[in-house]
């Protein structure tokens, strides 16, 4: 399991870095959605499905969409 954990965490960090480094804000938000996906798996790994389901619902349904809504009202590029 530890291998999976480490892999997940590494990808998570990569994801965070990618989200941060992407110049295209839309891309950053999309990658941030992937971040929350991976986070949900990690919650499961840590044995807290409640947090995972909340994160799933939020990451897929709320945060990303709100961010894209904001981008649509503002500008897409930095």
């Amino acid at each position: 399991m530890a291998v999976l954990d480490l892999l997940l965490l590494s990808i998570l960090v990569l994801c965070a870095l990618a989200a941060v480094r992407t110049r295209d804000l839309l891309g950053a938000v999309i990658i941030y959605a992937a971040y929350s996906l991976l986070m949900a798996i990690i919650w499961l790994q840590l044995g807290s499905p409640d947090v995972a389901i909340t994160e799933a619902a939020l990451g897929a349904g709320v945060t990303t969409i709100l961010m894209i809504a904001t981008i649509s009202k503002t500008g897409r590029y930095e």
């Binding site: 839309l26 996906l37 499905p49 995972a52 389901i53 897929a60 990303t64 894209i68």
Partner: peptide, 26 residues
Amino acid sequence: HEELFLDVAITYTLIGYTATICVAKY
């Protein structure tokens, strides 16, 4: 052996593509 974890996966199957639609619409 925690079948309840599947609820999380179901959540993703049900609403996972919302963001996709959102981006596409944008």
